[in-house]
C-alpha cells in the first residue's frame, strides 16, 4: 500500500509538470499583457519599464524556471491586475467555489446515481425511457441557458430566490442546480451502464440463485461492483465544478474561482491564470489519488496487485 501511494504521487508530479509547462505556453500565446496594464497613451519606454518590472523581458525558459521555483515554494506570483499574490486571491475565492462545487456534486449524485440504478434494474421500462430522456436533456441543454431560465422562473416570476451574488443558502440553490444538472445526467448514464454490465454477470445470477432479497442483490452485490467508474467520474466532476464553473459563476455573479479565471484570461493576467490552472491540476491529482485509494478499499484485487 505505501508503495502504491508513492508511485501515484510520483506520477502526479510528472502530470503537474507537464500541465504547468502547457499552461505557461498557452497564456503567452494570448498576447502581450503589458498593453493592457499601461495607459493607452503610454510610450514604448514606459511599456519596457513595466515589462522589466514584472520580469516579462526575460526569455521564456528563464521565466518558466523562476515560476516553477516559486511554485515549489508555494508562491504562485503576483496578479498583474489585482497587484496581490495569486494564492491570496485563490484562497479568498476557494470557500465560495467549494460551496458551489460540493452542492452541485451532491445534486448530481443524488439525482444521477439512484435514477441510474432504477433505470438499470427496470431496463426498457417506462421509467428507463423517462430517465434516458432526462439524461439526454441534461447533456444537451447548455448550463447558461438553464441558468437564465431558472433566474427567470424563480427570481423574476416567483420571486423566491435572489438572482445573483453570494450570501445564504438561497444564493446557492440556482447556480448549484444549473451546474449539477449536466453532471447529474452524465452520472445517470454512467451508473446505468455500469449497473447493467454488473447485473448481467454470473455472480449476480448466483446471488439470485441463493434466494437473497432483491435489495441485497442490487444494493450490495451489484452496486458495490458498479461503484468504481461512478466514483472516478464524481471525483473529476467535482474538481471541474469547483475550478472551472466559469459560465455559471459569471451568470449568477458568484464570486468563485471560475470568475477569477475568466477575469484573468481577459486581462491577460498570466500569473493568475497559471496559478488557478496549477491549483486545479493539483486538486485533480489529489482527488484522483483519494479515489485510487478508495478503490483499494472497495476492491481487494487492486489492494493486492497494486
Amino acid at each position: 500500500m505505501p508503495q502504491f501511494i508513492i508511485r501515484r504521487v510520483l506520477y502526479s508530479l510528472v502530470t503537474l509538470c507537464i500541465l504547468s509547462a502547457t499552461i505557461f505556453l498557452v497564456v503567452r500565446f494570448t498576447g502581450d499583457p503589458v498593453a493592457l496594464m499601461a495607459e493607452a497613451s503610454a510610450r514604448p519606454e514606459d511599456l519596457d519599464r513595466i515589462r522589466q518590472q514584472w520580469g516579462l523581458d526575460r526569455s521564456w525558459p528563464v521565466q518558466y524556471v523562476t515560476f516553477m521555483q516559486n511554485a515549489f515554494k508555494g508562491e504562485l506570483g503576483k496578479s498583474f491586475n489585482y497587484r496581490l499574490p495569486v494564492s491570496e486571491l485563490y484562497f479568498q475565492r476557494l470557500p465560495n467555489s467549494l460551496t458551489l462545487g460540493l452542492a452541485a456534486t451532491l445534486i448530481s449524485l443524488l439525482i444521477g446515481v439512484p435514477a441510474g440504478i432504477i433505470s438499470a434494474v427496470k431496463v426498457n421500462s417506462w421509467w428507463d425511457n423517462v430517465a434516458k430522456g432526462v439524461a439526454l436533456l441534461g447533456l444537451s441543454i447548455p448550463g447558461f441557458w438553464l441558468g437564465l431560465v431558472l433566474i427567470l422562473v424563480f427570481s423574476v416570476w416567483l420571486r423566491w430566490l435572489p438572482t445573483s451574488g453570494a450570501g445564504d443558502w438561497r444564493h446557492v440553490v440556482m447556480p448549484a442546480l444549473a451546474l449539477g444538472w449536466y453532471f447529474a445526467a452524465s452520472m445517470l448514464r454512467l451508473t446505468r451502464s455500469s449497473m447493467l454490465e454488473v447485473l448481467g454477470s454470473e455472480y449476480i445470477k448466483l446471488a439470485r440463485l441463493k434466494g437473497l432479497p432483491d435489495v441485497v442483490v442490487i444494493a450490495m452485490h451489484a452496486f458495490k461492483n458498479a461503484l468504481i467508474p461512478v466514483f472516478t467520474l464524481a471525483g473529476v466532476n467535482m474538481v471541474v465544478m469547483v475550478n472551472a464553473a466559469v459560465i455559471i459563476e459569471v451568470i449568477f455573479a458568484w464570486p468563485g474561482i471560475g470568475r477569477l479565471l475568466y477575469e484573468g484570461i481577459f486581462q491577460r493576467d498570466f500569473p493568475l491564470v497559471q496559478g488557478v490552472v496549477i491549483m486545479a491540476g493539483f486538486m485533480i491529482v489529489g482527488i484522483n489519488l483519494v479515489v485510487d485509494i478508495l478503490y483499494a478499499f472497495i476492491d481487494p484485487r487492486i489492494r493486492l496487485t497494486r
Binding site: 445470477k205 448466483l206 452485490h221
Partner: peptide
C-alpha cells in the same frame, strides 16, 4: 440450489 458453469465468474470479486 444451482451450480453455474463458470467458476471464475460466479463469485463476487468484492466479497
Amino acid at each position: 440450489a444451482m451450480i453455474l458453469q463458470d467458476p471464475m465468474a460466479s463469485l463476487n470479486p468484492l466479497f
